[in-house]
Design a protein around this nucleic acid. Structure first.
Lengths: 195, 195
DNA sequence: ATATTATATTGACCATAGTCATATTTTGAC
DNA sequence: GTCAAAATATGACTATGGTCAATATAATAT
């Protein structure tokens, strides 16, 4: 049964071509018709793979977010939880900012989908779970001493993360290094949660 | 010259009718045609007052946000800066959550407009300035001792605020009081910024 | 091989946000 | 009051995201 495989390939092709076009001309300026023309498929086919035009952006975001979960295992040797979070989210930051102009739209879509749509398991909640597990682990092995509940802590870290991501490019401050900016914000949260 | 006044009234009428309809049927389900029919005006007229359908939501958000700036003077007697922020943002919280289902969309629009559109002075930046002035004042009169830069502090508070607002209703936790949840989050930030 | 069923593709079609040239109204000058 | 200019209202029109019944293709059974 090759069908499943071919389907996946086509989805990937549509995705890549769309992203390519978005980067060239901007998201709004690219029509679905344009995307399908480039792919050599009919318009209806597009919507068999992505239920809305926005889903392309969401797909980009969630696929990057999913990589984080996998990365989590690779960095098992990092003892310091703050360090670990910094490295993990730093990676994600790097991957998202690679898509420069698109990044904000992608982040917006992630938030929209996570906060507006009633998915039981959305990508931000998964991220939350990953952070929670790090925090929980750190609480157990004593590298983090905190009187706050784990979900509250994770929540604070995530809000910091997304806010950094979104506000970064409109900061008129001298701070141009987004990772450094995130670290500054995280410092505050970290001090706030520690005993 | 009554024109300006009548214009303002019509804008307000369109706004109120639209909000009313949104609450009854949901944002997506209400068409611009429907709004103008209720108002007894032509479709084109709508777009003389709001450049996009979304602008109705944005208008709701920014008008609430503007009230905060005015409130700022009324609470001048509150000495404790954390308390002041809690009261101010608590008020905003109350006013936004009054619009229940609409609230999330409104918050989303505020964020979109602030982070995606290149307005020099968007509503979040104004909020940021207000918070900054509170922080700065507290630093001066010694009610807040912090080694962090004021913009970073304000930024942290705001990110906390919006995240609370958005995540509140999807929290499956037992925490159902949004103000209490915000206070928990703010506690962390506050401890983080204090010396 | 052939028939049957399941799955995927298609593009005409629809709904609606947003535009714009034209018509109407308001304003202020004389 | 009359007129010209400026501001505002209008609704036919356009562009595009998204739907869906009809069609084609692939998988499976006989």
């Amino acid at each position: 049964m090759l069908r499943a495989e071919r389907k996946k390939e086509l989805k990937e092709q549509i995705f890549l071509q769309a992203i390519q076009l978005f980067k060239e001309k901007g998201y709004e300026a690219v029509t679905v018709q344009e995307i399908v023309s480039v792919c050599g498929i009919a318009k209806g086919t597009f919507f068999n793979y992505f239920s809305r035009k926005d889903d392309i952006l969401l797909y980009l975001g969630t696929s990057q977010l999913e990589k984080l979960t996998k990365q989590l295992n690779h960095y098992h040797y990092i003892e310091n939880p703050k360090e670990l979070i910094l490295v993990l989210l730093g990676d994600l930051l790097k991957r998202l900012t690679e898509h420069s102009e698109l990044m904000k739209l992608v982040v917006m879509e992630i938030m929209k989908s996570s906060y507006l749509v009633e998915n039981e398991y959305n990508s931000i909640q998964k991220l939350q779970k990953s952070i929670e597990s790090i925090v929980e682990q750190a609480k157990i092995n004593g590298t983090l001493q905190s009187e706050h509940e784990t979900p509250i802590i994770a929540s604070s870290i995530i809000s910091t993360y997304f806010h950094t991501l979104l506000s970064w490019s409109l900061q008129h401050s001298e701070e141009k290094d987004i990772e450094a900016l995130f670290e500054k914000h995280l410092d505050i949260v970290w001090k706030g949660i520690s005993k």
